[in-house]
Nucleic acid binder design. Structure first.
Length: 440
RNA sequence: CGGGGCGUAGCGCAGUCUGGUAGCGCAUCUGCUUUGGGAGCAGAGGGUCGCAAGUUCAAAUCUUGCCGCCCCGACCA
């Protein structure tokens, strides 16, 4: 993409309403625009990041055996009356009446709807286990939206729903998501720690929040420092290996870890003092097992091997991609701007033509641009007729992992300077070596 | 929902107390000079001062009502 033809509205000054660093940087780097309280448009650069996150989320959901669908945002109130949640949910749910005076709602979550899909088609235990997920916009009419996309009213959520014949099966489904979540966050360059959680309005009796540590995090967390050294389950993990998965989950739940709501100071004090860690954290995922909470009132049953009908055991599993964008920034930024992990970066590399109009730098920039694209990289070419300083500031602000400076001085020796955003390291490389360096 | 704050050019702000020509910086546009870390000079464009009613010869400024946004608390992916 040529920056001169792109839509990248960066701001030099921080809009007044933005308080936390991720919100400030998202506005300044031109990722989002606020449209109302807790409601945001995603601008081109922000959408790129969001799409990259979604792709990783999808890959790990698919790897674990979950299957993608897409359900509507607007739901009928009748489904929610069946589960009893239409009255229970409260004012957070945005209720709408259509032209025929039918009660509708903008979905805050999809347990009822997915249960309806399930019961319409699945009759036999032989079709289990089943895990259906979608990535869809949700609306929760928060009392107080804040912190930009961290707590917005409209937000994107990956929500998965598992169906099993019994509790043991459901436990395995839960463990699959548990491992998939560990992998998803790790691939985004985040160290996540599963913490036992309150089950809240979704209900149920087994639940974990996945918390990433960030000094500006919204909640206080307490955990054993050894979690930071735990290894992420590898890509070739066998998700059908019941005992193997259970062993991974057991390991990742073996040490103390709790958010402030679930904190037990006595248990925390049992950790050796050097390994006691209290920090700030951001919740990026939440998983629940809730048994027959929905299958019972909604009569989602299958025939078992013994010829008996029984209610399926369910779980639900959420990740907020829009919130993850903010969480990534909270976890990784500096005074100059965002420092994207490579997996989430909107572009892999930026070429900075330091003297637009100069035949040498113009030609070299163009050549590099085509070469890097040909090598399969997403490249942003800063070909604006602007001073170099502005280009550096923009590139740092939007956090592209690699910056390639094409200026007349180094070019005189046939070289360009390659800079890493994360470390600030620079090296002078012959033009022809750039592709190999970035691919390495 | 309780408490507090703020709405003036795209962004950041001054002006409001004490009513009297609507300003500053950045951004934008034009020209020239510049080009290795947010350039310099000269010029230009851009405003229902959140909305409405009221007071007044006169309202960004005073009064009342409403709307929007932000922060703290309670609540939450």
């Amino acid at each position: 993409m040529r920056l001169s033809r792109y839509f990248l509205p960066t701001l030099r000054e921080t809009p007044r309403e933005a308080e936390i660093v991720s919100h400030r940087l998202m506005l300044r780097a031109g990722l989002i625009r606020q449209q109302a309280a807790g409601s945001f448009s995603w601008l081109p650069l922000g959408l790129r990041v969001l799409n990259k996150i979604n792709r990783i989320v999808r890959e790990e959901q698919d790897r674990s055996g979950a299957i993608e669908i897409l359900m509507p945002t607007i739901q009928s109130a009748d489904l929610w009356r069946e589960s009893g949640r239409y009255d229970a949910y409260g004012k957070e749910m945005l209720r709408i009446v259509d032209r025929h005076e039918r009660d509708m709602l903008y979905g805050p979550t999809n347990e009822e709807m997915v249960t309806d899909i399930f019961r319409a088609y699945v009759r036999s235990y032989k079709d289990l286990p089943l895990n259906l997920y979608h990535i869809q916009w949700k609306f929760r009419d928060e009392v107080r939206p804040r912190f930009g996309v961290m707590r917005s009213r409209e937000f994107l959520m990956k929500d998965a729903y598992s169906f099993d014949l019994d509790q043991a099966g459901a436990r395995h489904s839960y463990n699959k998501m548990f491992v998939a979540y560990l992998r998803t966050f790790a691939r985004l360059g985040l160290k996540s720690i599963p913490m036992r959680a309150d089950t809240g309005p979704i209900g149920g009796d087994l639940s974990h929040e996945f918390i990433i540590l960030a000094s500006t995090g919204e909640s206080e967390v307490f955990c054993h420092a050894d979690y930071l050294g735990f290894e992420t389950p590898p890509a070739d993990t066998d998700f059908d290996d019941v005992a193997g998965l259970q062993a991974i989950v057991d390991k990742w739940t073996s040490l103390y870890a709790a958010t402030s709501e679930m904190h037990d100071p006595a248990a925390f004090d049992l950790i050796p003092a050097t390994q006691r860690m209290s920090a700030r954290g951001i919740e990026v995922g939440h998983i629940f097992y809730f048994g027959t909470k929905y299958s019972a009132p909604m009569r989602a049953k299958v025939m078992g091997p013994d010829g008996q009908e029984r209610e399926v055991h369910m779980g639900s599993y959420g990740i907020g991609p829009t919130r993850l964008v903010a969480a990534l920034i909270e976890a990784s930024h500096d005074d100059a701007g965002i420092v994207w992990p490579e997996a989430a970066a909107p572009f892999d590399a930026a070429i900075l033509n330091l003297k637009v109009g100069d035949a040498g730098t113009d030609g070299a920039s163009q050549k590099l641009y085509l070469e890097l694209q040909g090598a399969g990289l997403d490249v942003l070419l800063d070909d604006r007729d602007e001073r170099a300083g502005g280009k550096f500031a923009t590139a740092d602000l939007i956090g592209i992992p690699w910056q390639i400076l094409v200026g007349p001085k180094s070019l005189a020796e046939g070289k360009v300077e390659v800079k890493r955003r994360a470390t600030g390291e620079r090296e002078l490389l012959p033009l022809g070596d750039v592709v190999a360096r970035l691919k390495a």
